[in-house]
């Protein structure tokens, strides 16, 4: 099975001030699949995820070495514009974080950043909004209240909206940082199903604390420990037949 590689890292190390969070991470993540990052708290899985669209540079004293290649282009290179990187690499956060704008403006927010505010006909605008919201199965429930504030939606709807607002700029990669941890079980199921349906068109990287979720909702798993990648394999393989003792111990709940 040959699949296109979407994300590669070469000797990626990352520091918060003096604290080293990632050690020489080498990975290749395939297009069209869901890849889970698992491991105990503080293992660096969120740091790795957040460095793929460089959002962890918001923290002043963050610093990295090595390369992160997206379609063969190093996004850590000095001439790279963050705006363009973040257009290609969308992110969904742990807590749903729609902006305090209307549902419509939330969906259009990213689009407007990348295409300018003017020159968007209202018919064109409505088409973009409908397409994005339909894709996340939200259109039918919100189509009559597109002008309502997005923060009034239920958490499940908010999280779906947060996915929908990434779609109009047609990103290649979707990063999800524990996207269901603030949701109840039925909402979790709905969001997982949605993510599963989106996987053909995107490269999805998912951080999760929940072993069961990693097992049922991803194609491949990457197990991390203390800032290093321990094991990277097919999800079925990892849960049935892990090759490292640490992985086996973590999956079976002996620590973490």
């Amino acid at each position: 099975m040959t699949m296109k590689i979407a994300i590669e890292t070469h000797d990626l190390s990352f520091w918060y001030g003096d604290f080293q969070a990632l050690f020489d991470v080498n990975l290749s993540i395939k297009h069209g699949r869901i890849t889970s990052l698992i491991g105990p708290s503080g293992c660096g899985k969120s740091t790795l995820l957040r460095s793929i669209n460089r959002i962890n540079e918001r923290i002043g004293n963050a610093r990295s070495t090595g390369q992160i290649l997206i379609h063969g282009h190093d996004i850590l290179a000095p001439e790279v514009e963050l705006l363009q990187v973040r257009k290609e690499v969308g992110m969904v956060f742990q807590r749903p974080n729609p902006l305090p704008l209307s549902i419509r403006d939330n969906v259009l927010f990213g689009y407007r950043l990348h295409h300018g505010k003017r020159g968007l006909k209202s018919s064109e605008r409505d088409r973009i909004v409908e397409k994005a919201l339909s894709k996340v199965l939200l259109w039918d429930s919100v189509k009559d209240r597109l002008d309502h504030t997005a923060t009034q939606l239920s958490l499940e709807e908010q999280q779906k909206l947060c996915i929908a607002r990434l779609l109009p700029v047609q990103p290649e990669v979707l990063l999800m940082d524990e996207p269901c941890s603030a949701l109840d079980p039925s909402a979790t199921e709905a969001v997982e199903e949605l993510v599963w349906d989106l996987r053909d068109q995107f490269t999805i990287v998912l951080v999760t604390h929940n072993m069961a979720q990693a097992r049922r909702a991803s194609d491949e798993c990457i197990f991390m420990l203390l800032g290093k990648v321990i094991e990277h394999s097919e999800t079925g393989e990892m849960f049935v037949n892990p090759s490292c003792q640490e992985t086996a111990d973590y999956i079976e709940g002996r620590y973490g």
């Binding site: 918001r58 807590r95 902006l99 305090p100």
Partner: peptide, 25 residues
């Protein structure tokens, strides 16, 4: 802060974050 983070993650510049998210809020 998660409003700023959300906008920045979509590629907004500092000024866009201030003008389109922070000031209206």
């Amino acid at each position: 802060d998660h409003y700023r983070e959300a906008a920045e993650a979509m590629g907004a510049t500092r000024w866009q974050v201030i003008f389109r998210v922070v000031l209206p809020t």
